[in-house]
Design a protein around this nucleic acid. Structure first.
Length: 454
RNA sequence: GUGAUUGUAGUUCAGUUGGUUAGAACGCCUGAUUGUGGUUCAGGAGGUCGCCGGUUCGAGUCCGGUCUUUCACCCCA
């Protein structure tokens, strides 16, 4: 019974062309990370659920892929557990889950290896993550993140260098239409204090984050629904006005947050990052955005997000500082900061803007036509010589009609085809055919190699 | 998780109020050309109409469920 095969929702296959382009992005990112002193790390696809749950909020826990225990996964359960519902049953039938991001496994790794690690520890990690989200444009259930994090220092140089790395990567990828947005969680905390809604930071962040989508009134309405007083909302007005004034508003922000020590600290940090970037001599596409909040609850300082400006797509990179990520694993007081590229979204943006270079597809440079047994040993000898000269070369594996062999070379975009049949062997030369021009000439082997390499 | 939406050949898509044998383009295969691809010409193969069920004399077409696609919300790279 032949059945049509399929792949799970939100997952994709990547063919040779896509892989060439993805590797082009991966290599660019990896190269930049290494240039800034980050070292590679890989962690398992699956983690114990105890590591993952509770780190991403209730919403996040729902989006975790859980792995059914091997063997008889009902062994530890009773009918009573079943009646209690899925929340009770889950820990009994699933102990592992697929990682949801790379930051939490990194924190776990740091705690487990704290005695062997030299701090500050800078690591990068390029691996897939999984989320049981409903797929949408630019949103997949399996996608790659490219993280760079430094843990064990609260130096703001790290924040500035993150901006530099983002700038460098997109410059190398030739992507110009993007904006790096920066904000600081302490500023957001300060705002809630100033408007008299201290402690309501989470709800505040969710609402303010939607400003560009639902406008002032939408935000006010949502805050009202969540129980913010009319007075608090009223006090928010001058701050939103500041947001519209743009980048030059740091001084004004300082005045508005005068009564909040936390808020002022956030402003100072932001100022420091801008100044460090000036000292680097960098001119990044960086913009203060007071409405930038980001969902992940572990952020405590700077937060970043990168948005493409000419393509409709969610953020293609994001990150921030967390002061106590390793605390839940028993290592408190370890400040870190990091960020991540969403490669799959970067890919979609580059594709839409036609920014992939032609050469990103590496193919065979020369193909030998297979003339059958009589000439095979000469052919294989020649093939070896080509490869020894550093040429990507192949021989058509079967003695097929020349038409078929040439059609194969043509479809694979192989620029040179070499014909070495009995005629050529007798004369001690080969026929080198240029597939672009269609012209061919009889030459000796060194001349052919030189021609192919030129 | 909530509410919509999509599915017909390898691909992109037609398909009339429900009516006989489901079409096109491109791609694929064969030949014109037994040592010459990309052009041209002639011919050919390929479809359980996503899957399961229902209504009907009759379903690609209508209804229900399910899977998948896309979109909005929630949230996020």
């Amino acid at each position: 019974m032949a059945q049509k095969p399929s792949i799970p929702k939100g997952t994709r296959d990547f063919g040779p062309l896509q892989m060439a382009r993805r590797n082009y992005i991966f290599n660019t990112i990896r190269h930049t990370f290494e240039k800034f002193g980050y070292m590679p790390l890989e962690t398992p696809s699956m983690e114990n659920l105890s590591v993952l749950t509770g780190k991403y909020g209730d919403e996040g826990d729902q989006l975790l892929f859980k792995i059914l225990n091997s063997g008889d996964f009902l062994k530890k359960t009773s009918e009573a557990d079943y009646r209690e519902g899925s929340k009770q049953l889950l820990p009994l039938i699933a102990e592992k889950g697929l990682r949801y991001d790379l930051t939490v496994p990194f924190a776990r790794y740091v705690v487990m290896n704290q005695n062997d690690i030299t701090f500050p520890f800078k690591r990068y990690q390029i691996q897939p993550v999984w989320r049981a989200d409903r797929p949408q444009r630019g949103r997949y259930r399996e996608f790659y993140q490219c993280d760079a994090d430094v843990i064990g220092t609260d130096s703001l140089i790290c924040e500035a260098e993150i901006v530099l790395m983002i700038t460098e990567v997109f410059e190398k990828l030739n992507l110009k239409d993007y904006i790096i947005k920066i904000n600081n969680r302490k500023v957001l905390t300060g705002i809630t204090e100033v408007i008299g809604a201290a402690g309501r930071e989470a709800d505040f962040c969710v609402a303010i984050d939607k400003l560009d989508k639902i406008g002032h009134e939408g935000v006010f309405k949502e805050l009202g629904e969540k129980g913010f007083s009319g007075e608090a909302i009223e006090k928010l007005q001058p701050l939103l006005a500041l947001q519209e004034a743009g980048d030059s508003s740091l001084d004004a922000l300082q005045q508005l947050l005068e009564s909040s020590t936390t808020g002022l600290k956030g402003v100072k940090e932001l100022q420091a990052v801008f100044e460090l970037l000036k000292a680097f001599g960098a001119q990044p596409k960086l913009e203060l955005d007071l409405t930038l909040a980001r969902g992940l609850s572990y952020y405590t300082g700077a937060i970043f997000e990168v948005k493409p400006t000419s393509v409709q797509m969610g953020s293609i990179s994001g990150g921030g500082r967390y002061d106590d990520l390793t605390g839940v694993f028993g290592l408190p007081g370890m400040s870190g900061v990091g960020f991540s590229f969403g490669v799959d979204r970067v890919y979609d943006v580059l594709e839409e803007l036609n920014l992939f270079p032609e050469e990103s597809t590496v193919s065979t440079q020369a193909m030998l036509v297979n003339f059958g047994e009589k000439t095979l040993s000469e052919g294989l000898q020649l093939l070896g010589k080509l490869r020894a000269a550093g040429i990507r070369a192949e021989i058509y594996p079967e003695e097929a009609k020349m038409k078929k062999q040439l059609a194969y070379a043509n479809k694979k975009n192989i620029p040179y085809v070499i014909l070495q049949g009995e005629e050529e062997i007798a004369k001690g030369e080969i026929t080198l055919k240029n597939m672009m021009s269609g012209q061919q000439e009889n030459v000796n082997i060194p001349a052919a190699i030189q021609q192919i390499l030129s």
